[in-house]
Write a protein that binds this DNA or RNA. Structure first.
Length: 479
RNA sequence: GGCGGCAUAGCCAAGUGGUAAGGCAGAGGACUGCAAAUCCUUUAUUCUCCAGUUCGAAUCUGGAUGCCGCCUCCA
């Protein structure tokens, strides 16, 4: 049974989609004003795994993500980079899509952006005004928080509490300082749109309400985003949507933890961030992704370059086992070899444990732990001196490979083909096989100097030699 | 100031009231001509501290301390 932690109830709840077999997810993306950093990517990886696991469970997933492409920041940055706001948004949207590709993120089924949905946004605002929850002053439209009695239900605070500790600038024309803009009169010279309230542009929160409703319906299953969006962004989305439609908005609210660095949340304004691109110069996308997934998605990450490096050793261990399994899969079974019952591996137990971990609010950290426990068991079997590739053992090898491979693809750290490397052309293969034959001959004659010279020489060319009990194997250093 | 969360080994990190997963690093051993890879053993009598509930607490309650997030643009 899949359980998810719902910010709305502050509890783990059984996941039951509104429509059987289908799941609608809306994830708040980013304002496309600069290159993405690790904080953005962390969320994207987390929701990608959630999506992959739901698909693994057989759900048909509709995954919507937005790009905020119109606001003050976009204009500011467009001026800095001397391009139009559209060009700027397009540039960083493309950059983001490239970044997530390198982290093996499947990507949304639909990407949506505010500027493509101005009509929907205006209609929604009109409806909210009509229902009596918003008012217009001087070309601005504000949501009236005092009218909406549920205001604060997501972030768990009351209007009184919020007012007590308010840090909001007092804007004279607002009825309550916490009233937020649905439509803003645009500054001079800005790109703006016609509306019943004059020219302007949408407030930040309304685009997500309008677009999620358009693509997923008035009520849908999962709404996700970073924990820093709980208030005010998601609180306001609920307020707008529910006063517009009169129906419950998203059923489950999921929030991923932040990425901190040097004791503070990684952010553009603090300046303590690594862009995804910078990190991809130091690590592979798989390494970063694996690192992210060693944390539970709701826990904050105190980021450390050193830790990414250390954690990657664990990933290499998984890769090694996969390589070894694949090698065995591709070798011939020894007919008539002894039937060996003692090499039974309880793969189903591990599979069950893996699923239980994922069912428990997508606990990838635990799931990875289970994979490593499995590694120990399967490695001890296939590396055992007595291990022979009988038909029975071949079944074990195949099932083990299948299990690992499936687990890896749920986590999105699958490797296309760990052994067959397209760089290994036939001639290269033959050449190395020949060199290794020479080395074997040297070893037979106990000419260790010669044997080691060959091994070291190949090593420098990026080829690693391993003398396993099953014979000599070689591979190229990955990446 | 208001609201919420977290504190688990040298480091990172799971943890469902029933006796502390996993990874990295370290130590010892097996295998090996030496390596690499892998396996085995070992590394928290205890989960920040103090009370309480309970037969039983890392888990629940209260308090203290420390750290983080949100309340302003944020993923």
């Amino acid at each position: 049974m899949l359980k998810v932690y719902n910010t709305l109830s502050r509890e783990k709840e059984e996941f039951i989609p509104l429509e059987k077999g289908k799941v609608g997810i809306y994830v708040c993306g980013l304002t496309v004003q600069n290159y993405s950093h690790l904080g953005h990517i962390r969320g994207a990886v987390n929701y990608d795994v959630i999506r992959r696991y739901l698909e693994y469970k057989g759900y048909e997933v509709r995954y919507i993500q937005n790009f905020t492409d119109i606001n003050e920041k976009i204009f500011e940055r467009a001026r800095e980079e001397r391009m139009t706001p559209e060009e700027l948004a397009e540039k960083y949207t493309q950059a983001y899509l490239e970044d997530i590709k390198r982290l093996n993120i499947k990507g949304a089924t639909h990407y949506v952006k505010a500027t493509d949905n101005i009509d929907e946004i205006i209609k929604m605002i009109e409806k909210i005004i009509e229902n009596g929850y918003a008012y217009e002053v001087n070309g601005n439209v504000y949501f009236d928080v005092e009218k909406y009695t549920d205001y604060g239900k997501l972030s768990g605070r009351t209007l009184e509490e919020m007012q007590a500790g308010a840090r909001v600038d007092i804007v004279e024309e607002k009825k309550n300082p916490l009233d937020f803009a649905l439509w803003k009169k645009a500054p001079e010279g800005a790109i703006d749109w016609d509306s019943p309230w004059g020219r302007g542009w949408p407030g930040w929160h309304i685009e997500c309400s309008a677009m999620s409703t358009k693509y997923l319906g008035e009520s849908f299953d999962i709404h996700g985003g970073g924990s820093d969006l709980v208030f005010p962004h998601h609180e306001n989305e609920i307020a707008q949507s529910e006063t517009c439609t009169g129906k419950p908005f998203a059923k489950y609210w999921l929030h991923n933890g932040s990425v901190n660095f040097k004791g503070e949340k990684m952010s553009k304004s603090v300046g303590n961030f690594f862009t995804t691109r910078e990190l991809l110069e130091k690590f592979t996308g798989r390494e970063l992704r694996y690192y992210i997934l060693t944390f539970h998605y709701r826990s904050p990450i105190e980021f450390s370059l050193e830790e990414v490096k250390n954690t990657s050793a664990g990933l290499r261990k998984i890769d090694n086992t996969l390589k070894n399994l694949l090698r065995l899969k591709e070798s011939k079974t020894k007919e008539g070899a002894l039937k060996n019952g003692k090499y039974k591996v309880s793969i189903n137990e591990y599979k069950k444990a893996f699923e239980e971990a994922m069912d428990d609010d997508f606990n990838t950290a635990r799931a990875i732990g289970i994979i490593h426990e499995f590694l120990r068991e399967i490695n001890s079997v296939i590396n055992h001196m007595d291990f022979q590739l009988t038909g029975e053992n071949m079944v074990v090898v195949n099932e083990a490979y299948e299990f690992l491979n499936t687990g890896m693809s749920i986590l999105g750290i699958e490797k296309e083909n760990p052994v067959i490397d397209e760089r290994n052309t036939e001639i290269l293969n033959d050449l190395i096989t020949f060199i290794l034959d020479v080395r074997e001959e040297a070893r037979k004659r106990k000419n260790w100097e010669m044997a080691d010279m060959i091994r070291d020489g190949l090593n420098e060319l990026g080829i690693i030699i391993k003398d396993t009990p099953q014979g000599v194997v070689w591979e190229r250093v990955s990446e």
